[in-house]
Nucleic acid binder design. Sequence first.
DNA 1: GCCAAATTGATCCATATGGAACAATGTTGG
DNA 2: CCAACATTGTTCCATATGGATCAATTTGGC
Lengths: 159, 159
Amino acid sequence: MTDENLLDRIFAGELKELMVVSYIVLGNNQVTNRYIEDKYRMPVHAWSALYAIDLFPGLRAKEIRQLFPRPQNTISRAVSLLQARGLITQETSDADGREKRLYATDAGRALLADMIDFSRRRQEEWLTPLSPEERQTFFHLARKIATGPNLLESEVARR
Amino acid sequence: MTDENLLDRIFAGELKELMVVSYIVLGNNQVTNRYIEDKYRMPVHAWSALYAIDLFPGLRAKEIRQLFPRPQNTISRAVSLLQARGLITQETSDADGREKRLYATDAGRALLADMIDFSRRRQEEWLTPLSPEERQTFFHLARKIATGPNLLESEVARR
DNA sequence: GCCAAATTGATCCATATGGAACAATGTTGG
DNA sequence: CCAACATTGTTCCATATGGATCAATTTGGC
């Protein structure tokens, strides 16, 4: 049985949507995570956090979770790493002593520019099979799923 | 800044396709992996492997990697776990003494039926925002990305 | 037929991960 | 004002992960 047959059949079952989305992400991770971890010596979540912090200066750790749904301690560690490397600064919020407002440093922004450049070229690579119109449609539909009410809140998985 | 604003803006940048797909998968994993690990006491990769083995009786470990792109030792461990729990059997291939052909047992199939039922209902949940036509379009486009030439093989990430 | 290289899968080990408990701070209800 | 509760972020610890190495087997070149 050839590779194509295997994929064809797993993309034909009841769980085809789950299978195809998982395949895209596992496949991309295999390439991207390894590259980023090798080149920048940091887990991918650290660069995600840096990306978010640069986009929203003064961001709080809990808000990073809204952008990248990960356990809370994963974010905490990523922020520690970025701080330890001088890529961000933290300052305790005036309004609430528990919160720390996060800001990218110049060094952080410089590193980020490099990472974004890679990610943009990598994204272009896996989007190659889609025309500009198809990309627009794909993004539109994916966005509907992402912002739908049941992605993070499940009735089915209630324990 | 509200949650919506944060998501709106991160889904508006150059990396919006990457961001939205990552968001869907991280969000779904947060719900699904925890449920499966709690209920069945196994990593999600073990159930993925069981799913593949049942669909393709006599499957080899290396072929599971084609369906679920993961490191080789992850598959090896998942197969060991399934074997230890009596959910699959392994028999050494006649043609090639290195290969082991994998088969689901009755117990494996019974457990799988339960897991598939959950996954189907969970998939239905996160697909809720899409109409039947939109689901078809989404799957069609995602499939093009998944089977494209650059998902697993990258020029950009070459080291 | 034989030896080098390739392939398949298991194991080792350092690091990442995530649930749970914790500490610090803020909020609420009486 | 104060005690209970909620929120924010850190730490602990058991387990998962993945690159590297290894063992067993097969393939290919001569």
